[in-house]
């Protein structure tokens, strides 16, 4: 009877890396259906291309770094799925490829690959592309314009509500339009209801933290309420700040990215609150119309510091409690 030695505990939960990453992929797929519904099959083509590029480059880097390849690793698939969703459907294919390569080769792999990366690769890739081609990235086609799969895009390019907010105008969109996302904007970030359901799905599956999402949205509403960009109408400005741009998408996917957010629950909430404030800072004073991507990159650098301070504070509380308990005995 050949027996193997294993360390306790001898039973393990059924979840493994593939199922955890699978939840994120599952949460992303409905956004692709909505994008295909609005903008035609071009959205799916962009998604497939981006996933392929990310997967192949990630594999090459791991082989270069000499790590054993054999374990199915879905994290490049998640990065590949996120990047086209935040770009307009009419974006040329080459820009998506550049964003993917930058995300994997520069932001993810040098820091050590899967669990060690400090910055969110999708956010980094998008930031690079926004800086290099700002006019291409912030020009959106109106929904329900079927775009050709290849070849020239002749559709009319319009500015998104976030641009109008930045310019001080009021994006006159009625309530239901904003919720269902039939207004010009990034491919996956406009349909608010689908995003909300994805958030609830991830919270239930425990790969997203509900309190952190609430903290982020709370700071954003406070900022939008106290300093409205639309003069006078405070509630309206709160609604438009939340629905325009990639804010809700960022809450669901950038804030709960496992590798780059802090680990302890308390520091996740603090991290989300500060991220909300920094995002609004980028929107008010930033150079670009949508600063969420840069804010997330900046906040990832703080994540480790916030976690260490929280650990120090909590261990001090714990020691005080232990002393009190030992005195009582």
């Amino acid at each position: 009877m050949k027996l193997t030695h294993r360390f306790p505990p001898h039973i393990r939960s059924r979840e493994n890396n593939v199922t955890v990453m699978g939840d994120a992929v599952l949460a992303l797929l409905p956004l692709y259906f909505m994008a295909c519904f609005f903008y035609g099959p071009r959205a799916a083509a962009l998604g497939i291309l981006s996933v392929l590029v990310c997967f192949v480059s990630d594999l090459l880097c791991q082989k270069l770094a000499g790590r054993k390849i054999g374990v199915i690793d879905l994290s490049p698939v998640v990065t590949g799925l996120i990047i086209p969703l935040l770009l307009p459907a009419s974006i040329p294919y080459s820009i998506v490829v550049v964003a993917d390569l930058f995300a994997i080769l520069v932001i993810k792999q040098p820091f050590g690959g899967l669990g060690q990366n400090i910055f969110n690769p999708a956010a980094g890739g998008l930031a690079f592309v926004t800086i290099t081609w700002p006019n291409l990235v912030f020009r959106y086609t109106a929904p329900f314009e079927k775009l050709p799969l290849f070849g020239e895009i002749t559709a009319r390019l319009v500015a998104s509500p976030a641009y109008q907010l930045k310019m001080g105008g009021i994006p006159y969109r009625d309530f239901t339009d904003m919720l269902f996302g039939n207004f010009p904007g990034p491919m996956g970030a406009t349909n608010i209801l689908v995003l909300a359901t994805c958030l609830i799905f991830l919270v239930v599956r425990k790969s997203a933290n509900g309190k952190a999402a609430l903290a982020f949205l709370g700071t954003v509403t406070v900022f939008a309420f106290v300093f409205p960009r639309i003069d006078g109408a405070r509630l309206q400005s709160v609604f438009y700040e939340l629905c325009s741009g990639i804010l809700l998408f960022g809450v669901v996917f950038f804030l709960n990215d496992p590798a780059t957010s802090p680990k302890r629950e308390a520091s996740k909430i603090i991290y989300a609150a500060i991220a909300g404030a920094v995002t609004m800072l980028y929107r008010y004073f930033g150079g670009f119309e949508e600063g969420m991507v840069f804010a997330i990159l900046l906040m990832n650098a703080f994540a480790w510091g916030i976690d260490m301070c929280c650990e120090q504070w909590i261990s001090r509380e714990r020691r005080k409690r232990l002393e009190k308990k030992s005195e009582k005995l």
Partner: peptide, 22 residues
């Protein structure tokens, strides 16, 4: 093949120098 105007910015200087050192 492709012109990336953002290569001239300081952030790419850092990353490019890091890659050269590596």
């Amino acid at each position: 093949a492709i012109v990336l105007p953002s290569v001239l910015l300081p952030f790419f200087g850092f990353i490019f120098l890091g890659m050269c050192c590596a």
